[in-house]
Each structure stands twice: as C-alpha cells, then as structure tokens.
C-alpha cells in the first residue's frame, strides 16, 4: 500500500466518521437564526447510537423489501462515496467512467428506499415515493451535465499533454477533480464556478433540504423524503439516517472538490474539510432564509440548474 492509498483511506475514514456532523451543523445554524439554542452538534451521533440499540416495528403489510431497503441503500451510498476523490486524494478504486457508476449507485439506493416505502401500503408513503422518484429522475440529467463539463475539461488536459492512451482514465472522478477545474477558474474562467453552484443546488435537491423539501416536518402533505421513511425504526432507521448523512457528505465533497485550490496534500485536505463544513453551514443559512418552493416549482428549479450547467458545458466546449 503506497502513501496515496493510505492518505485516501484516512480521508474516507474521516468522511465516514464526520458525516453525521453535517446535519448537526445545519440544525445548529438554523437554530441560531431562529434565536434558539438548538440541539447539540453531536445529536445525530446520539440518535444513531440510540436507534441501533432499539428493536424494530414492522407493519404486517411489509415484506422483505421493506426490511432490506435501508441496508441496500446504505451499501450503495457507501460504494458511491468510495469512488469519490476525497480531500484532493484520488480514489484507489477509481476507473474510467466511474462517475456513471457513482450516479447509478445513488440511484440504486433511492430505488431500494422507494420500494421499501411502497411496501408499507400507506398512501402517505406512496406519495413520498412517487415524488422522490419523479424529482430524482429529473435531477439525474442535471448531475450528468455537470459531470460532462468536468470530463470535457479533463479530456482537454489529456489531449494537450498528448497522452491519448490515457483517454479512459480522464473519464474518472479522480481525473475530473484533479485540480484543473480550480486552476482554470482561478485563471479567470468564471463559467467553471457554475459547476459548484449546480452541485450545491443538487445537494439541496438530492438531500431534501429546504427549497425542495423540509426535513423537519414529517406530517405535511408536501413532504418528500421524510414521508418516505416514516415507517422505519430501530437499526433500519439508523441506516437511513446515516446514509442520508453520507449522501450529504458526497455532494458536499463534490462541491468542495471543485472549490479547493491545489495545495500541498495536508493543507488541501484540511481546506477541503473546512469547505465541507462551511457548506453545511451554508445549507443552514439557505434553510433559514428561504421558503419552501411549491411542488410544481421544483422542476423549474431543476430546469434552471440544467440551463446553468449546459451554459457552462457549452462554454467549456468552446475554449
């Protein structure tokens, strides 16, 4: 095992450990905005520990789909996270086209949770499942547009250095986040800043944060994700909560990876971590100052993000 792999493993370990901190930060920021003290920062950890010690209640309608859903979803999210370069270190598992696998793995997790929701036979959860399916289907092309922009940047880099043999390697997440995007926007290519912006919008959409969904209210007719996981309890709920935190980390790391300038290894990793935590705070700010969008407006938000992403894509093609 070489040094890079060790460093990456440390980063991955940090991500797995620190991920439940993000919801805590968000909640703290929101509480401060509302003039409250707020829950402790480590509340998610306490929740997880308590949930793991509890038993489960399973409705009589449910089958194995319901019980297996959260486990499958968490496994898929973990695999997706392991493909992502973290803190500037390329993933040792990375390969050409791994962003496709990561995107579809997240899809796999969603699919498992949707089926688990439909398995309860409650109209309430059917509602959440239906909305989650719809909005994630619409978010998928947006995610691809940003990735396409990043791949064409890294393909450019490969062509300029003349290593055409490494074409497939340029299509991996590790190559995309190899720092060329950051260097380019630092050199004045402002359109590249649209990529982290779109990633941030996707973070809000995919993690059901406020302009799209309100994670705090289970019992309103407008909710998406929280409604879907209403019937889970015990270890299964713990897996869902932890999986959601990991997914939040995944998107925050995507955003941060584009914002961190190339620095010496440890400094870059530290900066990346700081940006991820700052992003969590930013989510808290967004949640405090914005109202939730009407459901029919969410496709517009995604459409706007898609428009920004395609503008960036077109401009990267030209240069």
């Amino acid at each position: 095992m070489n040094q890079g792999t060790v460093f990456y493993l440390i980063q991955l370990f940090l991500a797995l450990i620190l991920a439940p901190l993000l919801p805590g930060i968000i909640n703290r920021v929101k509480a401060r905005f509302a003039g409250r003290q707020g829950k402790p920062l480590l509340q998610t950890y306490y929740d997880l520990a308590r949930l793991l010690r509890k038993g489960e209640v399973i409705g009589r309608t449910a089958t194995w789909t319901f019980s297996a859903g959260p486990g499958v979803a968490l496994a898929a999210t973990l695999c997706a996270l392991a493909l992502l370069p973290l803190g500037g270190a390329p993933s040792p598992l990375g390969f050409g086209g791994d962003f496709l696998l990561a995107a579809y793995l997240l899809g796999m997790g969603r699919f498992a949770l949707i089926l688990a929701a439909l398995d309860t036979g409650s109209s309430f959860e059917g509602m959440g499942a239906s909305r989650e399916a719809a909005f994630s289907a619409l978010a998928e092309p947006v995610l691809f547009l940003v990735f396409l922009m990043l791949t064409s940047l890294s393909l450019d880099l490969v062509r300029h250095t003349g290593q055409s043999a490494e074409l497939v390697a340029a299509l991996s997440l590790s190559a995309m986040f190899g720092g060329q995007a950051t260097e380019a926007w630092l050199a004045g290519r402002a359109e590249l800043l649209l990529a982290p912006a779109v990633f941030f919008v996707l973070l809000l959409v995919e993690n059901c944060r406020i302009p799209v969904d309100d994670p705090n209210t289970h019992l309103e007719l407008t909710m998406i994700h929280e409604v879907m996981v209403l019937d889970h309890s015990g270890p299964n709920l713990a897996m869902i909560v932890y999986g959601a935190a990991l997914k939040l980390w995944f998107f925050a790391a995507l955003t941060a990876g584009l914002l961190t300038p190339p620095l010496p290894l440890w400094q870059q990793a530290g900066l990346c971590l700081l940006i991820i935590l700052a992003l969590a705070a930013a989510v808290g700010v967004v949640e405090s100052v914005m109202a939730r969008l009407r459901l029919t407006r969410i496709p517009h938000l995604l459409g706007g993000a898609a428009a920004l992403a395609s503008l960036a894509l077109i401009l990267t093609q030209v240069r």
Binding site: L118, A129, A133, S136, A137, L138
Partner: peptide
Amino acid sequence: LISGLAAALYAKAYGITFLG
C-alpha cells in the same frame, strides 16, 4: 434522463403490482 425515468417506471411497476 431516460435511465432516471426508467428507475421511476420500474419502481412503479414492481411497487404497485407486488408491494403494499
């Protein structure tokens, strides 16, 4: 987009027919 919609479609096909 097609594959995202396909996931929604088959969640529906399996979920509505076999679950609940």
